[in-house]
Design a protein around this nucleic acid. Structure first.
Length: 552
RNA sequence: UGGGGCGUCGCCAAGUGGCAAGGCAGCGGGUUUUGAUCCCGCCAUUCGGAGGUUCGAAUCCUCCCGCCCCAGCCA
């Protein structure tokens, strides 16, 4: 398996670390802040971290980076664990929390204070911003920068005891206010927040910042390779500064890679929330959402998502991957794993005028894999076909049912269109055809073979179903760049087929089971709403179609 | 204009001095009771640009151009 994996800079780097003896094992971690739902971008990070551990025989931790209680909740902790598990990964040991290391972080902060490497600063947020300087101007030292270690220690202890108001004081590292890297201009280590924490309750009124927590979390857990996205690159010198100045038990290393972006997709929490709030979608797990929960409800298999993440590779260059690659991975997986069945989305009644009697046909569940077996499908005089599969007359490119022309009914016989009835508006309401053959699978005796095949469902042995057909949520390739995300929404991202009919077997589908509705696409029984008595399917992805796009 | 990164086919991406993998998309053709699948073929004399080093450069050097990130008591 691992020999098939394409090389990338992370695998190359880890391999060389192992060979050079810089590390004897590989320990990674997926460290989400529990402040929202996971999306396709997180899936990439998950496959990178868990994948690397797996490939090098190491382990990967699931650690919640819960240093900012205001934005976090247990609800997100639960959904994140569910999503990681659903993607097929098992984290090493128990779920971990940065918050469980708070006391250690506090002791380390004291260590910095005692060594003159940190100080309590009384500047307001606004003042601190001004003192920080700009991208091209050096910052200025805080007037509180030279407080003695003992004064700082006393003040910091008071910060912990809760005597100060939020924002009144912070603990900062004493590094260099003139550093060209802004992150080194005396970064903030602790801020005062009089809010309860979902894990530690009211134990703390000061909370460490990401910078003061992340590297130390890695050190405590023995993480060897701390893999994060490119925007943290500038934080690496600070990450290393803490590791060097603190008596940590281990030296982890941070390596950054480019986050995943896909076309026709947004992953900004703010914009996603706009869609939910404006009811453009039904919720965070709407099948059109790029969240893991949404993709799951859409019927995207976890395996396909993982393959996609591997397929796109891992590099350091900013990119926007064509979402067609994701769709291709989904089709590729489903083609091999989904049983076939028939569903008529837009029913049109078809009567066979010379069919002698009803019969039960044995139809293969997969065209190329006999292991799927066969199923019984009732075939009778009255059927439903899709209204798009019939035309009173058409040119030779239309390979479906036409009056006076032949077509094969999938898994059954060859028929020829005879006549049709229309309503007042001229819409075809009923088609009549005669059977040219009676033996399933047989070709006509006169040698005139039909050009096409259409699917059908017995009118007397079908079950009504609601089928939601989805298309891309956005009609623009880079919707995230729009001023108003709502204007980029594809108005046809959802078309509900209220009158669809399915073969009876499909009504018994287990929620989340995906089938290929022949000639249409892959559809999943809705995870929450599907019931045998009231079937509900979601379109996962349509079949590739080289015809309808360029024709009517 | 300070610092840190990145630029290889329409979109991703291997390649780390020896003569441009692969996938997606696209385009031809074949098989086919899904206009699907599958199969075959085509698709970068060239690696952001210009110089230089070398027998030889996408890979090394120089300069230039373009794009991304950083001034939260967010992560």
């Amino acid at each position: 398996m691992s020999t098939e994996l394409r090389s990338n800079f992370l695998r190359t780097q880890i391999q060389s670390d192992l060979e050079a003896g810089r590390t004897g094992e590989v320990v990674t971690r997926f460290p989400p802040e529990p402040n929202g739902f996971l999306h396709i971008g997180h899936a990439k990070s998950i496959t990178v971290n868990f994948g690397l551990a797996e490939q090098f025989g190491g382990r990967c931790h699931l650690r919640f980076d819960d240093t900012n209680p205001e934005k976090e909740s247990q609800e997100f902790i639960n959904s994140i664990q569910e999503d990681v598990s659903w993607l097929g990964y098992e984290w090493s040991g128990e779920v971990r929390f940065a918050s469980s290391y708070f006391e250690q972080f506090y002791q380390w902060a004291l260590h910095l204070i005692d060594n003159g490497c940190a100080y309590v600063c009384d500047l307001s947020a606004e003042e601190a911003r001004r003192y920080r300087g700009s991208l091209v101007e050096a910052g200025q030292n805080s007037p509180f920068r030279e407080r003695s270690a003992s004064e700082n220690r006393a003040l910091f202890e008071q910060m912990r005891s809760g005597v100060f108001a939020e924002g009144a004081k912070v603990l900062r590292a004493k590094i260099d206010m003139a550093a060209p890297n802004m992150n080194l201009r005396d970064p903030i280590l602790y801020r005062i927040r009089h809010v309860a924490h979902h894990q530690t309750g009211t134990d703390w009124t000061i909370y460490p910042t990401y910078d003061f927590a992340h590297g130390q979390e890695d050190a405590i857990e023995g993480v060897t390779h701390s893999i994060c996205t490119l925007e943290f690159e500038d934080h690496r010198p600070l990450y290393e500064w803490f590791i060097e100045h603190l008596p940590v038990p281990h030296t982890p290393r941070q390596i950054e890679f480019a986050r995943l972006n896909t076309s026709y997709t947004i992953t900004s929490k703010r914009q996603l929330k706009q869609l939910v709030d404006a009811n453009v979608v039904t919720g965070w797990d709407d099948p059109r959402m790029p969240t893991i929960a949404g993709l799951r409800r859409r019927g995207y298999p976890a395996t396909a998502i993982r393959h996609f993440c591997e397929e796109v590779g891992t590099s350091r260059s900013d990119s926007i991957v064509d979402v067609a690659m994701l769709e291709s991975a989904v089709r590729d997986h489903l083609n091999k794993t989904a049983a076939r069945a028939m569903c008529v989305l837009r029913p049109l009644r078809l009567t066979l005028t010379n069919l002698p009697n009803e019969s039960v046909l044995l139809v293969p569940n997969h065209p190329a894999d006999e292991a799927f077996g066969v199923r019984e499908v009732t075939f009778g005089q009255d059927l439903f076909i899709d209204c798009q599969d019939f035309r009173e007359s058409a040119n030779k490119h239309f390979k479906r049912l036409v009056l006076g022309k032949r077509v094969r009914l999938r898994g059954a016989i060859v028929i020829e269109g005879e006549r049709c009835e229309t309503d007042a508006e001229g819409n075809v309401t009923h088609v009549f055809a005669r059977c040219v053959t009676l033996e399933p699978g047989a070709d006509p005796d006169d040698g005139i073979k039909p050009k096409g095949v259409i699917h059908w469902v017995s009118a007397d042995h079908s079950v009504p179903a609601v089928v939601r057909c989805y298309d891309r949520l956005f009609s623009q390739e880079a919707p995230g760049r729009c001023d108003d995300i709502l204007e980029a929404v594809n108005p046809e991202s959802l078309v509900v087929m209220q009158d669809a009919v399915i073969e009876p077997m499909l009504a018994k589908a287990v929620p989340e089971q995906v089938y290929q509705f022949e000639r249409e696409g892959y559809f999943v029984a809705d995870r929450y709403e599907h019931q045998s008595e009231a079937p509900v399917f979601n379109m996962t992805i349509g079949l590739r179609d080289n015809w309808s796009a360029s024709n009517g």
